[in-house]
Amino acid sequence: MPNESARTVAVALIAGLGVALATVAAAVVTGSPALAAEASHSVADTANDLFLLVAQRRGSRPRDERHPFGYGRESYFWALIAALGVFIAGARSPYARASSS
């Protein structure tokens, strides 16, 4: 149900922010390419959770005259954008350097 999903996304966002900060710090300290890849991944995850939060907010509006089926599909649109974000994060992660992530 919507409230439950919103909470799931909010928790993921906060936890993701923590993971992102930790991996970025670890990547900077060690200079490891694997950790740099992971760090860029974590940062992208956090950004994606923002998209999913938008999906939750916009998708849970009640139906109106112009939208007799409601706004539920809005969720799929924003989740699609978030999925593209995961793709980009994956494609560029091997090229990430600790200094630029």
Binding site: D45, Q56, V86
Partner: peptide, 10 residues
């Protein structure tokens, strides 16, 4: 639910 799916996958 695309949000739940995405979060679990992530």
């Amino acid at each position: 639910d695309p949000s739940l799916r995405a979060v679990f996958n992530e």
